[in-house]
Computed example of a mutant assay.
Amino acid sequence: MPAEQPDRRLPKLPTPAIRLPFRTPFKTPFKTLGPGSVSSLLKIALDVAYVLLMLITAVLLLLFVAALFIPVSQYNITFTNDDGGTQQPLTRALVLFGVGAFSAYFGGFLLILRNLRMIFRTLTMGDPFQPENVRRLRQVGLILAVVTAGVWLAQGMVAARLAPGVMDSQGLGELLTPIFSVLVVFVLAEVFREGARLRRESELTI
């Protein structure tokens, strides 16, 4: 029998593992959801802002009630700009309009902060895709749209009736940023709605 020939093949070298940069999972240096995360810090900031805004709104409402009884006819109000100014007698209707407008403005943002606090509470719990968050985001978008429209109308009325030629009303270009913000909020609401739907389907599948 012929002698067995030795195996002259070269040994296979181990193939080094090559990791491409774009396949490396990105990890944030901080925690975004759950207790002790950035969401919990923002939740604390929203709580503080909510309390402060509640106090401001309460003071404005008290001023609105006081304006019903305090005489204001002996006072004047002055509107000025770089070219000059105009002076108008301060009437009770004007005071009620001004205080009421500011009360509605801060009250609207108080409702927005209330919904945002509830949303960030779910983020702190690590469970953001809840059906209630969809409703809350839609309320935030609706209230923001109403506040934006109210400010635009109020400033237009003041510029036309009280300070013509001194105060300019808001143009359509100045509404682009608020309108964009409202649209972003409604898009986020749809994102949360889709996330809640996927979560519900996964729970039913399990």
Rank of each mutant, 00 (worst) to 15 (best):
L90D: 02
D47F: 11
G126D: 01
F120R: 04
Q130M: 09
N133S: 04
Y75A: 04
R121L: 04
I143N: 00
Q139F: 13
I143L: 06
L110C: 10
L55E: 14
L137R: 00
L116H: 00
A66N: 09
L60W: 10
R136P: 08
Y50E: 11
A145Q: 10
V99T: 13
V38D: 08
P131E: 05
I44Q: 14
F30W: 15
L61V: 10
V146P: 02
V59T: 09
V151C: 03
F120T: 09
L137A: 01
I56M: 10
P21R: 07
M167L: 12
A160G: 02
Q139I: 13
L55V: 13
T24R: 11
T124M: 05
V134I: 03
A66L: 15
G100A: 03
N76V: 06
L116S: 06
T24L: 13
V38L: 10
L41R: 11
S39G: 12
F102T: 09
L68Q: 15
G141Q: 02
V48Q: 01
G84W: 01
S40W: 00
G98Y: 13
P128G: 00
L61S: 10
F97D: 07
R92A: 08
A104G: 11
A160E: 15
L116R: 01
F69N: 02
L60S: 06
L111C: 07
L20D: 09
I112G: 00
F97L: 04
T80I: 12
K31R: 13
P89N: 02
F109S: 08
V95I: 09
E132A: 01
L53P: 11
G84K: 02
P131I: 01
G107I: 03
F22C: 12
V166F: 03
G165I: 00
M157K: 01
A66W: 14
G85V: 00
Q155D: 13
P89Q: 03
L137N: 02
P128Y: 04
I44C: 10
T148F: 04
G84Q: 02
L96P: 03
V151N: 15
K31S: 08
F97V: 04
P71C: 03
F64T: 14
L55I: 08
A45M: 08
V151R: 14
L52D: 07
F129Y: 10
Y105Q: 07
A104K: 10
T80C: 04
M167C: 07
T80R: 12
I119W: 04
A154Q: 10
S37D: 06
L142T: 07
G34P: 00
L55M: 07
A163G: 03
R114H: 11
F69R: 14
R136M: 11
L61M: 12
M157T: 07
G141T: 00
N115W: 10
V140C: 05
L62P: 05
R92I: 05
T78R: 15
A160H: 11
T122S: 12
R114K: 00
V38N: 09
V146F: 07
I143P: 01
D83Q: 12
A93E: 10
T78S: 12
L52A: 14
S103V: 06
L113C: 09
R114F: 14
R117A: 05
V166T: 11
F69E: 08
W152N: 11
F22M: 12
N115Y: 13
A93F: 02
L90Q: 00
F109W: 12
A149S: 02
F129I: 04
T32G: 11
L20I: 11
M118A: 14
L142E: 07
L60Q: 15
G36E: 02
L142C: 03
